[in-house]
Amino acid sequence: MSETASSPGDDEHVDEAQNERLQKAVIVAVRAGQRPRVLAEGKRYAALLNAPLVVVHVDVTRFVTFEDPDGMVHSAPIDLNIDTGAEEFAQVRAESEKALAGSGLTWTARQLVGDPALSIKHLVHELDAQLIVVGTRSRGIGESIREFFTGSVAARLSHRQSTPILVVPLEEPVPDDKKDPWAE
């Protein structure tokens, strides 16, 4: 059963009652159009742990400007095209609804903003999450450049908080006789 999902227009404000229902959740970070394996693993572990599932999309085109004492987060766009993040979140929500239909899980989708590792870390702390599920990066020059500037989300999370992280491979494994993708 899906709960109400936050959207970028909500200024990331989610009521305390919803956060209370999501305590000890499994958090799965997804991108629009990503292979469904990451969400499937999050779904599997949420069922195994009898935990709620929080599907998270991080809008990296926005940044946090300040947070009110009551937890309401205010954000501003880096780019004037603020619809990109909203469109991606709508796609993530639709993909999640399809994948989680009939699962019997309590789940919600949340849009976070800013640095992926830091925003996920904040949510993990807020919900006292049991597990974080993330995918590996895609191969290619664009992803290599992005990772050069932002670093690996999984690696950064592993050094900044204590909740276990499940890293799900998104592509076929690199053969042993090939160069490591991060060395490209």
Rank of each mutant, 00 (worst) to 15 (best):
V28Q: 10
S96Y: 04
S2V: 08
Y45G: 08
A51C: 06
T61E: 04
L118R: 15
A99D: 07
R139H: 04
V153N: 03
L80S: 05
G71R: 13
V14A: 06
A101S: 14
L53E: 01
D59V: 14
H159L: 14
R160Y: 04
R93P: 10
V54A: 05
A101W: 13
A5S: 15
S103D: 12
R37M: 14
A40V: 14
A47Y: 01
V168T: 02
A40H: 06
A90F: 01
L80A: 02
T84F: 03
L48D: 11
R21P: 06
E67L: 13
Q111G: 04
A29N: 10
P181D: 02
L170S: 05
V153A: 00
R139W: 00
R37E: 11
N50Q: 14
F89D: 00
V56Q: 08
E172Y: 11
G135C: 05
G102W: 05
P164F: 03
G102M: 10
I120Y: 05
E20K: 13
T4M: 13
P173T: 00
V168W: 03
L112N: 05
V30P: 07
P8D: 01
L112V: 05
V133H: 02
V55G: 04
L100V: 11
G135M: 00
R44C: 07
V38P: 01
P169S: 03
A183Y: 01
Q111E: 04
E87I: 11
R110K: 11
